[in-house]
Computed example of a mutant assay.
Amino acid sequence: MIRTVLGDIRPQDLGVCDAHDHLFLRSRQLPGQELDDVAAARAELEAFRAVGGAAVVQWTPHGMGRRAADLAGLSRATGVHLICATGLHQAPHVAAESLAGLRGRLAEVFVAELTEGIGTTGVRAGLIKVAGGFHALDAHARWTMTAAAEAHHATGAPIAVHLELGTGALDVLDLLCGELDVPGNRVILGHLNRFPDPVTHRQAAASGCWLAFDGPSRAHHPTDWQMPAAVRSLAEGGFADRLLLGGDTVTAGARSVDGGPGMPYLLRRVRPRLEAELGPDLVARILTEHPGRAFSIDRA
């Protein structure tokens, strides 16, 4: 099943899915650029729906303004399935007092948000989002990933990992799948488009994990032109069934309704570009069948 903000649905009912994006996000690293406008979030979902989108996985975790209480209403109003995250990002993104309040009970919080709901909202999270560092895992990353693994083993929820500039994939897999016994197919690696190294990508894919290419280029990592070849290399290497696509809108100015590429860009521009590289049938599976498998939860 897929745990949406309106309840559990069958994977085959998810539809065309943006596998990594944000309707709401607040970070100490992005002052003045918060995603915190309900009307703009609704307009963005309507724009995504208008180009054929049916589902969005919001990777905004605990302590970053995910506004879980607003997600059910947005899903009903727009007809777009929404999946909400629990989890914890890198320490610089989260208020110090919020981090202090989680010491000694992080896995407990993750499990509660997956099974009982987020606060009093009645919304249950459908995935656990954590983050690595730049080419390494610091103590914070190991703490959050250890808690994520514990929550996964208790609930069956998938673990989605922010890779800093796309790096550190093999270190993440060594920890999660090696030391912490999380099955590879329960791990989703994000931002691989930002570090388009085909050797590393294939080594990571061999674990059985999901490989997410999510978001257009930004000023400090202009890699769009390399992304289609990286995806084709994985498909040719026998890993076509492990691919995911997302938009990763993280600032207000990046929304399509505010002049940026936003969620519709995934279907307006990325999809036809990849169809030319991979063929429409595979791209259709990447957008529909693959998210239904990657984000499934196998326990009530």
Score class of each variant (00 low, 15 high):
Gly7Asp: 12
Pro11Arg: 05
Gln12Met: 05
Asp13Leu: 05
Asp13Phe: 00
Gly15Pro: 02
Val16Gly: 01
Ala19Thr: 01
Asp21Arg: 02
Phe24Pro: 00
Phe24His: 00
Arg26Leu: 01
Gln29His: 09
Leu30Arg: 14
Pro31Phe: 00
Gly32Tyr: 06
Glu34Asn: 10
Leu35Gly: 02
Val38Pro: 03
Ala40Arg: 15
Ala41Ser: 12
Ala47Tyr: 12
Phe48Ser: 02
Ala50Pro: 07
Gly53Lys: 01
Gly53Ala: 08
Gln58Ile: 08
Pro61Lys: 05
Gly65Glu: 03
Ala68Leu: 11
Asp70Gln: 12
Ser75Ile: 03
Ala77Asn: 10
Gly79Trp: 08
Gly79His: 07
His81Asp: 06
His81Val: 05
Cys84Ser: 15
Gln90Trp: 00
Ala91Phe: 02
Pro92Phe: 06
Val94Cys: 04
Ala96Glu: 13
Arg103Leu: 08
Arg103Asn: 04
Arg105Ile: 06
Leu106Val: 08
Leu106Met: 11
Glu108Ile: 06
Val109Asp: 07
Phe110Leu: 11
Glu113Ala: 06
Glu116Tyr: 00
Thr121Gly: 09
Thr121Pro: 09
Ala125Arg: 00
Ile128Gly: 01
Ile128Met: 10
Ala139Glu: 14
Ala141His: 07
Trp143Tyr: 08
Thr144Met: 08
Thr144Arg: 06
Thr146Asn: 10
Ala147Pro: 01
Ala148His: 07
Ala148Gly: 13
Ala154Arg: 15
Thr155Lys: 06
Thr155Tyr: 09
Ala157His: 02
Val161Pro: 00
Leu163Ser: 02
Leu175Asn: 03
Leu176Cys: 11
Arg186Ile: 04
Val187Asn: 02
Ile188Met: 11
Leu189Arg: 04
Leu192Thr: 02
Pro198Gly: 15
Val199Phe: 00
Val199Ile: 07
Val199Arg: 09
His201Arg: 01
Ala204Lys: 00
Ala205Thr: 05
Gly208Cys: 06
Cys209Met: 07
Ala212Ser: 13
Asp214Thr: 03
Pro216Gln: 14
His220Trp: 15
Thr223Asp: 08
Asp224Met: 14
Trp225Gly: 11
Gln226Val: 10
Gln226Arg: 15
Gln226Trp: 10
Pro228Ala: 12
Ala229Ile: 06
Arg232Phe: 04
Arg232Met: 04
Leu234Gln: 02
Gly237Val: 09
Gly237Ile: 09
Phe239Ile: 05
Phe239Arg: 02
Ala240Glu: 15
Asp241Asn: 14
Leu244Phe: 12
Thr251Cys: 14
Gly259Gln: 13
Gly259Tyr: 09
Pro261Leu: 15
Gly262Thr: 03
Leu267Ala: 11
Val270Ser: 04
Pro272Trp: 14
Arg273Cys: 11
Glu275Met: 10
Glu277Ser: 08
Leu278Trp: 05
Pro280Asp: 13
Ala284Lys: 07
Arg285Tyr: 02
Thr288Val: 14
Glu289Trp: 05
Phe295Thr: 01
Ile297Pro: 01
Asp298Pro: 03
